[in-house]
Amino acid sequence: MDQDKQAKLASKGWKIGTVNEFLDLTPAEATYIELRLALSENLKQRRTQLSSSQFAQLLNANPSQIEKLETGEASVSLDFLIRSLLTLGTTVKELADIMVHSQDFAGNPSV
């Protein structure tokens, strides 16, 4: 957002900040959310050759669980998300790379 727009908003009582500030997230919470989102996005990109129903059958899950996996839904366990990526052939090194790069989005220094 440009400086002029920020100044106009501030003069009218608006606060300018980040999502993390608005939600009052700790650095650990922000990093965890970014990690889940990065894993979910990667899963969505990797399963393009399978339909949702084919992928659901492969995981012994239902299509609504696949949708939740791909959107980063909080109700989906991190365990299920990682197992799903491994089922698609993701290597441990690739998982580590996803995790390292997810920190770039959270504004934290990379490992």
Rank of each mutant, 00 (worst) to 15 (best):
M1T: 03
D2A: 06
D4K: 08
Q6E: 15
A7K: 05
K8R: 15
K8Q: 14
L9K: 12
K12Q: 14
G13A: 13
W14N: 06
G17V: 04
G17N: 09
G17P: 03
N20H: 12
E21M: 08
L23S: 09
L23P: 03
T26A: 13
T26R: 11
A28W: 05
E29L: 14
T31Q: 11
Y32D: 15
A38K: 07
L39C: 00
S40W: 01
N42P: 02
L43H: 01
K44C: 02
Q45S: 14
R47C: 03
L50I: 01
L50S: 07
S53G: 02
F55P: 02
L58D: 02
N60L: 10
I66M: 13
T71R: 13
T71N: 15
G72P: 05
E73V: 03
S75N: 12
D79F: 06
F80C: 02
L81D: 08
L81A: 00
R83Y: 09
R83P: 04
R83C: 04
L85E: 04
L85F: 05
L85N: 08
L86K: 04
T87I: 03
L88D: 01
L88Q: 11
G89C: 08
G89K: 01
T91G: 10
L95G: 00
A96Q: 11
I98Q: 11
I98R: 00
I98F: 07
H101D: 15
Q103I: 06
Q103R: 15
A106C: 09
G107V: 05
G107N: 13
S110G: 12
